[in-house]
Design a protein around this nucleic acid. Structure first.
Length: 249
DNA sequence: AATTGACCCAACCGCATCCTC
DNA sequence: GGAGGATGCGGTTGGGTCAAT
């Protein structure tokens, strides 16, 4: 079953965006909002693929983006989340307001990998590696403690992802590094607080429950009993509210 | 000053998943 | 239930920048 191309490639620009294109895209989204990326380029007068517009907006033009260097705190958050989630950059980005998955992915590949290696930690497995000295150094950094079983198991790569024959993808899918049956990062103290979000103000009419599964990339009902708890039954938390900015899992 | 290589990051590509009909 | 369109995600790449030689 062939898929039609996402756009008419013969009539689209590629490569770096010009200032004018940026301005057109921003102006259009300000006026009409995000969404309907496929039709956006034509409506906005852009000779671009919808995917390209979306990417440009998400990764560069969005007004809430935080530019500039990552802080040490952000580094540590990324490292900890990566230990749980693997290369789920969008989920990691969801915990870092103002950062994009692309930015985090690039930052991981260019900075954090090296930082972890310098600590004697394998960036894919998050476990000590190399010489005994390096392992000792890493062990001192990684306080053995209880991992978060629910998170760790829920974040296991899907069979489809792990069965990919794409080398890069398979490397990403094994980012947890644990072989089958082996607990993922059993000796990590991830120090992530997991619990229900703080109760919303009493006068917040639109507040909805937050399902952790949403942020872990799980689909409705997948390893998740939240639906059963919902009074409305099957629909329940079919659509989970993304976490607000600054709201952490 | 010219060259080279490493580094960085924006953007592209292909695939997976969701949604609608 | 299945087909096809739309969107999102993660890996990879191309080109710009900068430091070292």
């Amino acid at each position: 079953m062939g898929r039609s191309p996402c756009c008419e490639k013969a009539h689209t620009n590629k490569g770096a965006w010009t200032k004018e294109e940026d301005e057109r895209l921003v102006a259009y989204i300000r006026a009409h909002g995000e969404g309907c990326w496929r039709s956006l380029p034509k409506a906005a007068g852009l000779l671009r693929c919808g995917k390209s517009c979306r990417l440009r907006w998400m990764n560069y033009l969005r007004p809430d983006l935080k530019r500039g260097n990552f802080t040490d705190d952000e580094d540590e958050v990324i490292i900890r989340l990566h230990a749980i989630l693997g290369n789920k950059w969008s989920l990691i980005a969801g915990q870092l307001p103002g950062r994009t998955d692309n930015e985090i992915k690039n930052y991981w590949n260019t900075h954090i990998k090296r930082k972890l290696l310098a600590r004697g930690i394998d960036p894919q497995t998050h476990r000590p590696h190399g010489s005994a000295a390096a392992a000792h150094r890493a062990a001192a950094l990684l306080h053995p403690a209880t991992a978060v079983p629910a998170l760790a198991s829920a974040a296991k790569p899907s069979p489809a992802a792990s069965s990919s024959d794409d080398g890069a993808r398979s490397s990403s899918s094994t980012s947890g590094g644990a072989s089958a049956g082996e607990p993922r990062c059993p000796d990590l103290n991830l120090d992530l607080s997991v619990g229900p979000p703080p109760p919303p103000p009493a006068d917040t009419p639109t507040s909805r429950p937050v399902c952790l599964c949403y942020r872990l990339g799980l689909r409705a009902g997948e390893a998740c009993g939240c639906q059963a708890d919902h009074p409305s039954g099957t629909q329940g938390l079919r659509y989970f509210r993304p976490l607000e900015q600054g709201q952490f899992i």
